[in-house]
């Protein structure tokens, strides 16, 4: 019965919602067909500006004649299918952004862990006078942070154990 519901729901979602949403994404029109965008593009005079308008004409424009970036609705079924061809606007840069943030965070975290292992005094010293070789290695290792974080999450060392966390008396 549960499987039947799942199949019916999927069928409804595929037939009912996806084509409607695909026909018109949030009331946007392709920039190449947008009058205000074309008006703006015709004013371009430098080769760089012409190339820019040429590239932006592939995206979708609002009534203001400006390109709008599409974000997939994360909770919507088949969200990715709505923004087919527009993944480069938010999704791919977003993933790259989060990956780089992860590298920065993981590099700092692993550096602090590494100097902590050297003893309290040396750790204090190495926070001010950076151990550049160690820091560089931490940064290289941090490029694999999604896997390292997963492994640490599995073996329990990602988080501090509960008895090391102070709580107020209650």
């Amino acid at each position: 019965m549960r499987r039947l519901f799942a199949v019916v729901l999927s069928a409804l979602l595929i037939i009912g919602f996806a084509p409607v949403a695909k026909a018109d994404i949030a009331g946007l029109t392709p920039c190449a067909e947008n009058a205000r965008f074309q008006q703006r593009a015709s004013a371009a005079d430098t080769p760089q500006a012409i190339a820019r308008f040429d590239r932006y004409s592939k995206s979708l424009c609002g009534d203001d004649g400006l390109p709008h970036a599409l974000i997939p609705a994360p909770t919507e079924p088949f969200a990715m299918s709505f923004i087919r061809g527009h993944e480069g606007e938010i999704m791919i840069p977003g993933v790259i952004h989060l990956y780089i943030l992860g590298i920065i965070g993981w590099a700092g975290r692993s550096y602090l862990h590494a100097i902590k292992a050297k003893g309290h005094k040396q750790a204090l010293h190495d926070e001010i006078h950076i151990d550049t070789v160690l820091a560089f290695n931490c940064m290289l290792r941090a490029t694999a942070w999604p896997w390292l974080a997963h492994a640490e999450g599995q073996n329990g060392s990602l988080r501090q154990s509960d008895n090391n966390i102070t709580v107020s008396p209650r």
Partner: peptide, 11 residues
């Protein structure tokens, strides 16, 4: 690579 409003997509 100026004016990269979005990641270039080939499709």
């Amino acid at each position: 690579y100026p004016d990269l409003l979005f990641h270039p997509m080939s499709f």
